[in-house]
Structure formats: C-alpha cells, structure tokens
Design a protein around this nucleic acid. Structure first.
Lengths: 128, 128
DNA sequence: CTACTATGGTTCATCTATGAACAATGTTGG
DNA sequence: CCAACATTGTTCATAGATGAACCATAGTAG
C-alpha cells in the first residue's frame, strides 16, 4: 500500500516540477485544462465539480489565475448568483506550454512500464 | 499515469478518514510512528529527514502535536541548537489506536489485490 | 584564536485543500 | 404569491507542505 503512496508522490513531484517550468502547477493546469476541454466558460461550481474539490478552493485558485491574467471572471447573464470563468489568450498559450510538457512526461512515464504489465497495472489501479 | 494519481488519492483519502476517527492524520501518525520506531526522542531535523519533509513543516506539525499533548519538546543537553521530540503516554496510546486501524485498512487493501498480481504491481511501483 | 561555514529551529509568505458560515439569488410546493 | 429550501460564490479558520530569511550555536581552516 505504501509503495503506491510513494510511487504517487514521486509522480506528483515530477508533474509539479514540470509545470513549474512554465509557471503552472498541477492545480492551475487542471483548471485551464477543463476550460480548454469545455471550449466555453465554466461556473466556479462546475469547475470544482469537474476537478473534485470544494468550491472555496476553486475561488482561491481562480483568484490566483486571474491575478496572473490567465483567466477572467464574468457574470453569468442567466443566473446572477453564478460567475463564469473565461480563459484568456495568455491562459490558452500557457495551457499549450503545459500540455506540451505533460505529453513528454507522460511518454517517459509510459516508457518505464513494460508493455506486458500495463494491462495488469491499469486493471488493479482502476479497482480503487 | 493519471490512474496512478487517482488510485493514490483514493488510498490517501481512506487513510486520512481512518486516522481521523482517532483524531490523527497521516502526517501526525507519521511523526508518532517514527518516535515509536526509534524508541527514543528525535530531533526535529531528524524527524523531517525521516519523513522526507522540510524542517519548517516539522516545526508546525510538532507544534500541533504538542498542543494536543501527544508529544513534548525538550532541549538536547549535548547541542544547544537542537530540540528533541519526546512522545508522551497519551501520544503512545494514540499511536496504538492509529496502528490498529492502519492494520485493518492495510489488510482490506491487500485483499483487493489478486495474489498473482501483487508481485508485478510491487515491482513496477518500486521502479519510481 | 578567529573568521568562515554549516546546522538546527523558527518565522514568514505562499500554495493547495477542506469545511463551516453567510449573503444573495433561484426554485418550488402549497 | 410566498415561505421554505437549494444553490452560488465568498470569507474565515485550519491543516499540511514548501522555501527563503534569520538567529543562535557548532565545527573547522588558517
């Protein structure tokens, strides 16, 4: 069990480092990525739901992304409670840089797992 | 790669919940566990090293453990820079409760992994 | 012996995350 | 219609983690 924890910590650290090279983090990239995938603005609640975190966390995360100019808040015309998060051109560019590096890390990660064992591993991990 | 991240998050959440039942957390249990394993007081630096975290983190962690009466700081007679962390009877008891629950979680965790696949899994995970 | 360097612990600023409480707004059952 | 209820985003307190800066103390090279 602790092997799993350790393995994961090492993978996570590698990802944080990688994203750090372009001024991002796992959390920040996650937000940008959801906005890119959705191809449209998303409410804070929606982002929190998609990234499996609480809303107050998203408030702060978006605060920081907004301060960096990667994202913008705009009011939802159809629901005055709601705020939609819009990715800016800068944010889009930054996401691209992050995605590029992510591909590389993922490739090198996959390379360390023998072909034959990938299925077994995937199946076991999915069991959680 | 992300399967690994997700699996780990779920395992970690389970552990946090389990320790939460006895007023502990993964981090707090880790500290108590090192003190129990060492069978002697440990310096803050030593604890930080063994738990792979920075010293400032250990300062805060021990602050909280001390506030809960699970641990005590005492000056090191041989090095006036150093502070040794001593586990209290309360801390020892709490560690026992945590260890008990950890055994259960670990057992149920192991039960979800088919015998035949354990070796493969362990070998691949150790590769990181 | 003194000056330089290394180590130990703390503090502070920051990031990520959670959960409780709250005000503003929406929705719905009588 | 409107009184309960639900949802949205925020704020606050707290936990855990990092890294820089700092002071006190130790160790060491000249």
């Amino acid at each position: 069990m602790f092997s799993l924890l350790y393995a994961m910590q090492s993978v996570e650290a590698r990802l944080e480092d990688t994203f750090g090279e372009v001024g991002l983090s796992l959390a920040r990239y996650g937000v940008l990525n959801e906005l890119v995938r959705a191809e449209s603005p998303l409410a804070l609640s929606e982002l929190a739901a998609r990234l499996s975190c609480v809303r107050s966390n998203m408030t702060q995360l978006v605060d920081r992304l907004e301060a960096d100019g990667l994202v913008r808040r705009e009011p939802d015309p159809d629901d005055r409670r709601s705020t939609r998060v819009v990715i800016t051109p800068d944010g889009l560019a930054r996401h691209g840089e992050g995605a590029e590096r992510l591909r590389q890390v993922e490739a090198s990660f996959d390379a360390t797992i023998p072909e034959a064992e990938r299925d077994v591993l995937l199946r076991v991990l999915k069991a959680f």
